[in-house]
Amino acid sequence: MNDAQMIQTDRTGLLTQEEIRQIDAELAHIPYKSGAAIDALKIVQAHRGWVSDESLQAIASYLEMSAEELEGVATFYNLIYRRPVGEKVILFCDSVSCWICGCDKIKAKVSEKLGIDYGQTTADNHYTLLPVPCLGACDRAPVMMIGDDLVTHLDEEKIDQLFSDNQSGGDQ
């Protein structure tokens, strides 16, 4: 056997009781443990904001997968964050209807207010800004999500209001 094989370090201990409870609930209707990979990533991310290497290893070990197998899954999906994100993720829709309705300008405004571009997090760790494919609210374009909240009919004024109390020093 291989060294790596013999060192069977069980990392599941890094998961919390609550996370394990939620993962187990998913496993109840999935025939293979690895089948809950995406659910487990989402569950852990819901608790921790993002999926660190340690979290990923812990999940992999709980689902009896290798870190590689889980990494392949984690890096495939847009909404699994493998880097830290701020307290709230802004999912900014940049797809076609929002684009027609001028989302580029709004995006520039958001960036200016918060001082961050796509993929970045504000200095106060409040927000991370990410682009997202069409949010399915094209009749209310332009739109974005702040955390779980959908914000519609965006214009520059609205951005000003939304982030008016932002302390992150965007308005340089």
Binding site: Q5, E68, E71
Partner: peptide, 26 residues
């Protein structure tokens, strides 16, 4: 083997390990 996988997507697909290290398969 379990320590080599396809990662990421679109034109950034990557084949490798989770972390650098010796491939485990004989």
């Amino acid at each position: 083997g379990t320590d080599l996988s396809a990662q990421a997507s679109h034109d950034h697909v990557y084949f490798g390990r989770h972390e650098a290290g010796v491939l485990e398969s004989e």
